[in-house]
């Protein structure tokens, strides 16, 4: 009985581990564009937070405007780089 249980466990696990479908999940290195998309989301979220906190009275107006300008510049730089990279990708991509 114990032997049968051990054998069943061994065979089941062996089959599961080594019976791998041909197309295994591809591992790719994250691109600069993907990284910038993530950064963009973060900066947008920071902007939303800033707007909300200003509405809630946590910032004085001059502080808010200065912070907002800084964040918008950061977002603008990210978007600009994204646009350049996307244009380059589109130019280099093969015509289907």
């Amino acid at each position: 009985m114990t032997l049968a249980a051990c054998a069943a466990l061994l065979i089941g696990i062996f089959a599961y581990v080594f019976y791998v479908p041909r197309a295994a999940e591809e591992q790719h290195q994250k691109t600069r564009l993907e990284f910038l998309r993530e950064r963009k989301d973060v900066v947008y979220e920071n902007l939303r937070d800033l707007n909300f906190e200003y509405s809630a009275g946590k910032y004085l107006e001059e502080e808010y405007l200065a912070q907002r300008a800084l964040m918008e510049n950061e977002a603008a730089e990210i978007l600009a780089e994204m646009e350049i990279l996307e244009t380059m990708n589109n130019t280099n991509s093969p015509i289907v």
Partner: peptide, 8 residues
């Protein structure tokens, strides 16, 4: 969002 539009 409003702030984001300005950034865009």
């Amino acid at each position: 969002s409003p702030g984001v539009i300005a950034a865009d």
